[in-house]
Computed example of a mutant assay.
Amino acid sequence: MTRDDLRTAAEDSANPHGDSSGVTFDRRTAIKTAVAGLGAVTLPWGTAAASSRTDTQSDDLHSLMITANGPLEYEFTVDGTLEADTEHGDFSADSDDEPKYVENSPSVYTVIDETGPTLENAGGTAFHGDRFLVDYYAHLTLDAHPDYEANVYLDETLVTVDELNRMQLTDPSLHTLTIAANGPTSYELQVEPEMTPDHKGGNFSADEDDAPTENADGTFTAAGTTGPLSKEAGAKTVLGDRYLFSGSVETLDLQLSDSSHEKYVYLDEKPVNPSVVRQMRF
């Protein structure tokens, strides 16, 4: 399944009269039954797939992430303010995000955990997350604070929890699944037959040497190289840099070292075409 097929697949699998929907539904019911009673961590605000942007989100400050699964050179100029975000945007799995077998269901893995910043550090552009490599069937229960935002990405594409839970991932390769939030968020993820924490990919925080430079006309330019090294390129290892800005992006140039690799641009945590970024005014 390609990224372009994700939403189509979600709609098709939601059709109760489709050829494979009965199989998918039965399997997911079995998975949910198998993990019932495991005692997922539950926060006191109830289950939510995602919530609207918080009132504390600054209308003037926006996040821009540039990521790739191969070496990527980038340069962009902002008429306004620009800073490298070295504190947020790390969506790699933590060392304790190891999946466990579900009792009496040896082919089902589960992870029960929390992600996002603590409540006192929540809101705005303070996104943190966890990332996994998954295969075939995935079922996610997300418990997000109603005042903050939680996002789910499958193969770097933004999806809803309902879309994810209806999908049957027929592509034989592993898929990336990222859960990111700017507020405290608990989740329970069940996958069959394979799930691995992604400790290599998903770190989109800026590096210390990614600081932008001020130009003579008062604009700011950031330039650098991101993505994995060539020997690890072309697979599911996606790395990037993250910036916070206000004003307008006047120029944006992205150059992959190999055209077979893929690049991704996110504006305020949403995937966008690079041309859209150049047209925005804030």
Rank of each mutant, 00 (worst) to 15 (best):
residue 209 D to Y: 12
residue 200 K to C: 03
residue 88 H to F: 13
residue 46 G to W: 01
residue 230 S to M: 11
residue 125 T to L: 11
residue 257 S to A: 15
residue 131 R to N: 15
residue 104 N to P: 02
residue 183 G to N: 06
residue 23 V to Q: 04
residue 256 L to R: 08
residue 90 D to W: 01
residue 121 N to K: 13
residue 8 T to G: 14
residue 258 D to F: 02
residue 158 L to T: 02
residue 262 E to R: 10
residue 117 P to Y: 03
residue 121 N to W: 04
residue 90 D to P: 02
residue 29 T to I: 12
residue 48 A to I: 05
residue 47 T to F: 05
residue 180 A to F: 11
residue 39 G to V: 15
residue 248 S to I: 07
residue 126 A to E: 06
residue 69 N to L: 03
residue 174 L to W: 10
residue 64 L to V: 07
residue 105 S to V: 01
residue 152 V to C: 13
residue 268 D to C: 12
residue 238 V to A: 03
residue 64 L to C: 04
residue 82 L to E: 09
residue 274 P to Y: 06
residue 95 S to H: 08
residue 49 A to E: 14
residue 253 D to H: 11
residue 57 Q to N: 08
residue 221 T to A: 13
residue 255 Q to E: 15
residue 4 D to E: 13
residue 199 H to L: 15
residue 218 G to D: 15
residue 103 E to P: 00
residue 233 A to K: 01
residue 157 T to E: 15
residue 124 G to Y: 08
residue 83 E to W: 00
residue 229 L to V: 12
residue 16 P to W: 05
residue 266 Y to K: 09
residue 103 E to Q: 12
residue 176 T to N: 10
residue 99 P to N: 06
residue 142 L to T: 11
residue 54 T to W: 07
residue 209 D to F: 12
residue 55 D to C: 02
residue 104 N to R: 14
residue 67 T to M: 12
residue 45 W to A: 08
residue 239 L to Y: 02
residue 206 A to K: 06
residue 66 I to Y: 04
residue 24 T to R: 14
residue 234 G to R: 03
residue 239 L to G: 00
residue 21 S to T: 14
residue 202 G to F: 06
residue 141 T to I: 14
residue 164 L to K: 11
residue 103 E to I: 11
residue 33 T to G: 04
residue 113 D to S: 14
residue 93 A to I: 06
residue 216 A to C: 06
residue 226 T to Y: 12
residue 62 H to I: 02
residue 134 V to H: 06
residue 251 T to G: 07
residue 154 L to G: 01
residue 274 P to K: 01
residue 245 F to R: 01
residue 279 Q to D: 11
residue 65 M to Y: 03
residue 213 T to Y: 00
residue 240 G to W: 00
residue 136 Y to T: 09
residue 68 A to L: 03
residue 44 P to M: 01
residue 141 T to A: 12
residue 246 S to V: 00
residue 189 L to W: 02
residue 267 L to P: 00
residue 14 A to R: 13
residue 219 T to N: 07
residue 211 A to G: 06
residue 47 T to H: 03
residue 112 I to L: 10
residue 41 V to L: 13
residue 43 L to F: 09
residue 81 T to N: 01
residue 35 V to L: 09
residue 174 L to I: 08
residue 191 V to D: 05
residue 114 E to N: 10
residue 212 P to Q: 03
residue 128 H to T: 14
residue 245 F to Q: 03
residue 141 T to E: 14
residue 176 T to G: 07
residue 265 V to L: 02
residue 230 S to H: 10
residue 122 A to H: 05
residue 163 E to K: 15
residue 105 S to K: 06
residue 254 L to K: 06
residue 173 S to V: 11
residue 32 K to S: 12
residue 32 K to D: 13
residue 245 F to N: 02
residue 219 T to Y: 04
residue 166 R to K: 13
residue 198 D to W: 02
residue 110 T to C: 13
residue 122 A to G: 08
